[in-house]
Amino acid sequence: MEFQAKINVTLKDSVLDPQGKAVTHALHALHYESVSDVRIGKYMEVRLEAESAVKATELVHGMCEELLTNPVIEKYSFELVEVVS
């Protein structure tokens, strides 16, 4: 089966996000004063083969922990969809 994982990586809540802060200020300057916080992250799409959704989920967790994120400062979440051709 073919799957696609849509992965979101962001800095942990405890880690200051200077990019997010700069963008918050810029939004305020653009009259979006109601914005209280911006966190900037990365979005990745990974296509993979796996025998089941359970197996694919396990593989994506592995990739996220070993390479796609740095667990010291980042966290991730993902959505897995089956690719039907």
Binding site: L11, L16, P18, Q19, N70, V72, I73
Partner: peptide, 10 residues
């Protein structure tokens, strides 16, 4: 141990 982030000033 630890990690290196973007400079605070960007």
């Amino acid at each position: 141990p630890g990690a290196l982030r973007h400079n605070e000033s960007l």
